[in-house]
Design a binder for these strands. Structure first.
Length: 106
DNA sequence: GGTTTGACCATAA
DNA sequence: CTTATGGCCAAAC
């Protein structure tokens, strides 16, 4: 059963819209929500092609907690309250979605 | 209908 | 830390 089919992009966007403000998720996580964790790459490709402003693409980062769009994305996240460990790194243990641990967000 | 272009992840060495 | 490998293809042109 294939997961990546025509219309895949739309499903990616729908999944990304579920990510709450102030939180971030990973490409792999979105892929898992869509039914196949091995299609993380496709999620990245889909988002790269995304032009829909309703989609909070900036909340999707890689599994290492790194952003890949530089200052623009960082500032969008910081405005939502997401803190950065380094210039392009987010602590997924604290801001990742869904929440993995009991960690609190002060 | 062929070519190009894209923002990944886990694992290993 | 870096590099490599296997998993995997829609959309726009």
């Amino acid at each position: 059963m294939r997961v990546v089919t025509p219309g895949f992009h739309k499903r990616v966007y729908a999944a990304v819209r579920r990510v709450p403000r102030g939180r971030v998720t990973t490409y792999g996580n979105i892929a898992a929500l869509l039914g196949a964790k091995s299609v993380a790459r496709h999620v990245g490709w889909a988002l790269a092609a995304c032009t829909d402003k309703r989609v909070p693409w900036h909340r999707v980062i890689n599994a290492a907690g790194r952003i890949h769009k530089g200052a623009e994305q960082r500032q969008l996240l910081e405005r939502e309250g997401v803190e950065f460990i380094a210039r392009d790194r987010v602590d997924l243990k604290r801001f990742g979605w869904p929440q993995r641990r009991k960690s609190r967000l002060t």
